[in-house]
Simulated assay, not measured.
Amino acid sequence: MPTIGFAGLGFMGAGMAANILKAGHPLKVLAHRNRQPIDDLVAWGAEEASNAAALGAECDIVFLCVTGAPQVKALIDGDEGIRAGARNAGREGLVIVDCSTSEPTLTRELAASLSEDGITLIDAPLGGTPAQAETGELQAIVGADDATLERVRPVMETWAARIMHVGPVGAGHTMKLLNNFLAMGYGAIFAEALTIGAKAGITPQTFDSVIRGSRMDSGFYQTFFQYVLERDRNAHRFTLANAHKDTRYLASLAEAMNVDAGVAKAVRDLYASAESQGDGEKYVPELSDIVAARYHTSLGK
């Protein structure tokens, strides 16, 4: 079986890496801020890599699941990055699978430059929740050539219930940004609708009694309102800082495509304002409280 490397053991990555290990693949993992996931994986049989270069030198396939474009760039092209490790070891044929939500322009640029070193980069950003990462039920939105996808598919199937091939490298990140624009757009709309309703005497409970089960209901709606109604912070663990990052990337993509995306910019600006006031580590459903507080109202029971 190919030796797998994994960098980025956060909410999603920890569960993904655990499933790769459970399937019997030799696994090398790279530590970052939180030691608990890596200590658990090592206890279950994984090996800790000293740096990203070691992943490039010793692995056949390396998965990245980090915050965004700067972190991807650093892991690949840092002084002790994956490219340097593969190059120094004389290793060709390495495949890097970027599961982060990154910028499509950077993805295509890195893919082109890595190919000169015999390294293939594909993008496979994720759909789903940390709970689905643990149970192996994520979605992978893949930008890749057919041959590379088939090479990595058996490993991806250890953590993904659905693998969607949407085009060549960069297409996965493009589609993921569009998906997250829809999700974060709904989050912004829910937050403002709840505040307007509360100011007009419509409680969150009344709001939910009309929307739940209607055509406007969805999985995103349900986890968002699990926080609004039950105050369950863990129902939807996606930070406002990440929401701002993704909507910023989408607005930049729209600008590069010469699209004056007024809605995208408005959504981006709302998340940017939440992060700028120090709420970046709060989760997306908590935007409802942030917006309500700005208008001197409360949505809590």
Rank of each mutant, 00 (worst) to 15 (best):
P2T: 03
G5D: 02
A7M: 10
G10L: 05
M16H: 05
L21W: 09
H25M: 06
P26Y: 07
H32S: 07
R35H: 14
P37K: 08
I38W: 14
V42D: 11
A43E: 13
A43M: 07
G45Q: 13
E48M: 12
N51R: 07
A52Y: 07
C59Q: 10
C65A: 05
V66F: 13
T67P: 05
A69Q: 11
P70E: 09
D77W: 12
E80I: 03
G81W: 06
A84K: 13
R87K: 15
L94Q: 06
D98H: 04
D98Y: 02
T101C: 04
T120C: 08
L121G: 05
D123K: 09
L126P: 03
T129P: 06
T135V: 11
G136A: 13
A144N: 02
D145M: 08
T148D: 10
L149A: 10
P154K: 11
V155K: 08
R162H: 11
I163L: 09
G167Q: 04
P168C: 02
V169N: 01
G172M: 04
K176I: 01
N179L: 08
F190D: 00
A193I: 01
I196Y: 14
G197S: 07
A200Y: 12
F207C: 02
D208A: 15
D208G: 05
R215D: 00
R215C: 02
F220R: 15
F220H: 15
Q222A: 10
L229R: 15
E230Q: 14
R231K: 14
R237Q: 09
A241M: 09
N242W: 03
H244F: 12
H244W: 13
D246V: 02
D246N: 10
Y249C: 01
L250K: 10
L253N: 03
L253W: 08
L253K: 14
N258F: 10
V259N: 06
V263K: 08
A264D: 01
K265V: 09
E275G: 09
E286L: 03
D289C: 08
I290H: 11
T297F: 07
S298A: 13
G300P: 00
K301S: 05
